[in-house]
Amino acid sequence: MQVTWGNVTVTFSNPEEAKKYAEKVARKLGGQVELHNGQFRIK
Rank of each mutant, 00 (worst) to 15 (best):
Glu23Arg: 07
Gly6Lys: 06
Leu35Tyr: 14
Trp5Ser: 02
Lys19Tyr: 14
Lys43Thr: 14
Lys24Met: 14
Glu23Pro: 00
Thr9Ile: 11
Glu16Asn: 10
Val3Gln: 00
Gly31Met: 09
Glu34Arg: 05
Gly30Ala: 05
Glu23Asp: 10
Asn14Lys: 08
Gly31Lys: 05
Asn14Met: 06
Arg41Ile: 15
Tyr21Lys: 01
Gln39Ile: 14
Glu16Asp: 12
Phe12Leu: 06
Lys43Leu: 15
Ala18Trp: 03
Trp5Arg: 02
Val8Ser: 06
Lys19Ser: 07
Ile42Thr: 01
Glu34Pro: 00
Lys28Asp: 09
Thr11His: 11
Val25Ser: 02
Gln32Arg: 13
Val10Pro: 00
Phe40Asp: 01
Asn7Leu: 07
Ala26Ile: 03
Glu23Phe: 14
Leu35Trp: 10
Val33Pro: 03
Ala26Tyr: 02
Leu29Gln: 04
Met1Asp: 04
Glu34Gln: 07
Asn14Arg: 09
Val33Cys: 06
Gly6Asn: 08
Gly38Ser: 04
Ala22Gly: 02
Arg41Gly: 03
Phe12Asp: 00
Asn7His: 10
Ala18Arg: 00
Thr9Gln: 05
Phe40Cys: 04
Leu35Gly: 04
Val3Cys: 05
Ile42Asn: 01
Asn7Gly: 10
Ala26Gly: 03
Val8His: 12
Glu34Val: 13
Glu23Thr: 08
Tyr21Glu: 02
Val3Trp: 02
Trp5Gly: 01
Val33Trp: 07
Val33His: 02
Thr4His: 09
Val33Leu: 07
Thr11Val: 10
Gly6Leu: 09
Glu16Met: 12
Glu17Gly: 06
Met1Asn: 08
Glu16Phe: 11
Lys28Gln: 12
Val3Ala: 01
Lys28Val: 13
Gly6Met: 08
Thr9Tyr: 05
Phe40Leu: 13
Val33Asp: 00
Gln39Ser: 11
Met1Glu: 03
Pro15Gln: 11
Lys20Ala: 14
Phe40Ala: 02
Gly30Ile: 03
His36Gln: 09
Glu16Ser: 11
Ile42Glu: 01
Phe40Ser: 00
Val33Met: 05
Val8Gly: 04
His36Ala: 09
Ala22Ile: 04
Asn7Lys: 11
Thr11Asn: 10
Tyr21Thr: 02
Glu17Ala: 13
Glu23Cys: 15
Ala18Phe: 03
Arg27Glu: 10
Gly30Cys: 14
Phe40Ile: 09
Ala22Asp: 00
Gly31His: 06
Trp5Thr: 03
Lys19Glu: 07
Arg41Lys: 09
His36Gly: 05
Asn37Asp: 11
Lys19Thr: 04
Ala18Glu: 00
Met1Pro: 06
Ala26Thr: 02
Thr4Lys: 10
Asn37Gly: 08
Ile42Val: 09
Lys20Asp: 10
Gly30Leu: 05
Gly6Pro: 02
Ala22Lys: 01
Gln39Trp: 04
Lys24Gln: 12
Ser13Asp: 12
Val33Thr: 03
Gly38Phe: 05
Met1Phe: 15
Ala26Leu: 03
Gln32Ser: 14
Lys19Gly: 05
Val3His: 00
Ala18Ile: 02
Val10Trp: 13
Val25Gly: 00
Gln32Lys: 13
Arg41Tyr: 15
Phe40His: 03
Glu17Thr: 12
Arg27Pro: 01
Gly6Val: 04
Asn37Thr: 03
Phe12Glu: 00
Val10Tyr: 11
His36Pro: 00
Lys28Trp: 15
Ile42Phe: 03
Phe40Asn: 01
Arg27Lys: 13
Glu34Ile: 13
Ile42Tyr: 02
Gly6His: 09
Tyr21Ala: 03
Asn37Ile: 04
Phe40Tyr: 15
Leu35Asp: 05
Gln2Gly: 07
Phe12Arg: 01
Lys19Asp: 02
Lys43Ala: 10
Thr9His: 05
Thr4Tyr: 07
Leu29Arg: 04
Arg41Thr: 13
Asn14Phe: 06
Val25Arg: 03
Met1Gln: 06
Lys20Met: 12
Glu17Met: 13
Ser13Lys: 13
Thr4Gly: 04
Asn14Thr: 13
Val25Lys: 04
Leu29Tyr: 10
Gln2Thr: 14
Ala22Phe: 03
Ala26Asp: 00
Ala18Thr: 01
Val10Lys: 11
Val8Trp: 12
Tyr21Asn: 01
Lys43Ser: 11
Thr4Trp: 06
Gln32Cys: 15
His36Asn: 08
Val25Pro: 00
His36Cys: 15
Leu29His: 06
Ala26Gln: 03
Gly31Tyr: 06
Asn7Ser: 11
Lys28Tyr: 14
Tyr21Pro: 00
Glu34Thr: 08
Val10Met: 11
Phe12Ile: 04
Tyr21Asp: 00
Asn7Met: 08
Asn7Asp: 10
Asn14His: 08
Thr11Met: 11
Met1Gly: 06
Asn7Gln: 09
Val25Ala: 04
His36Ile: 15
Lys20Phe: 08
Thr11Leu: 10
Ala18Gly: 02
Thr9Ser: 07
Arg27Val: 08
Thr9Arg: 06
Gly38Ile: 02
Phe40Lys: 01
Phe40Gln: 02
Thr11Trp: 15
Trp5Phe: 09
Trp5Leu: 07
Lys43Asp: 05
Gly30Phe: 05
Val33Gly: 00
Leu35Arg: 07
Thr4Met: 10
Asn7Thr: 11
Ser13Gln: 11
Met1Tyr: 15
Glu17Phe: 09
Arg41Asp: 03
Gln32Ala: 09
Ala22Cys: 04
Tyr21Phe: 14
Leu35Cys: 12
Asn14Trp: 05
Ala22Ser: 03
Trp5Lys: 01
Asn7Arg: 11
Arg27His: 09
Val25His: 02
Pro15Trp: 14
Ala26His: 02
Val33Ser: 03
Val33Ile: 10
Leu35Thr: 07
Gln39Thr: 11
Val8Asn: 09
Gln39Gly: 14
Glu23Lys: 08
Arg41Ala: 06
Glu17Val: 11
Thr9Asn: 04
Met1Ser: 10
His36Lys: 11
Phe40Gly: 00
Glu16Ala: 12
Gln2His: 08
Gly31Glu: 04
Gly30Thr: 03
Met1Ile: 14
Pro15Ile: 14
Ala22Asn: 00
Thr9Glu: 04
Lys43Gln: 10
Glu16Tyr: 12
Pro15Val: 13
Ser13Arg: 13
Lys24Ile: 12
Gly31Val: 07
